[in-house]
């Protein structure tokens, strides 16, 4: 599966990374080289293999339903590029 410039632009947009036309052009051969290389995995017969889920045998633990956190707004907002009236602020969104 070799990808073209349009695909590169779609991936960049899905990734929310702005790229110029030139950058898109540069990405095409680069990504194709890497993808071409990883596609050798296709050679491996995995018809009877389950995908790995937990690398080391381990069970998902269930937490008790108690309030142990929160009430730390100052720490939550401490690094905000823009905070106002206790909210994070972002450019206006039209839904």
């Amino acid at each position: 599966m070799s990808i073209d410039k349009q695909t590169v632009k779609k991936i960049a947009s899905l990734s929310r990374i702005a790229i110029t036309d030139a950058e898109a052009d540069a990405f095409v051969p680069e990504l194709n080289q890497i993808l071409g290389w990883v596609e050798q995995l296709g050679e491996v017969d995995c018809s009877k293999v389950e995908p790995m889920t937990a690398v080391i045998a381990n069970k998902l633990r269930l937490r008790d339903d108690v309030v142990t956190d929160g009430e730390i707004r100052d720490r939550i907002l401490a690094n905000a590029p823009m905070a106002d009236h206790g909210f994070f602020a972002v450019p206006k969104v039209i839904e």
């Binding site: 929160g70 009430e71 707004r73 907002l77």
Partner: peptide, 17 residues
């Protein structure tokens, strides 16, 4: 997370890291 689900609290006060 361990933050409360209580309805109607002050903005961002029931938020954990």
């Amino acid at each position: 997370s361990g933050a409360s689900t209580e309805f109607g609290a002050e903005p961002n006060t029931q938020v954990s890291l």
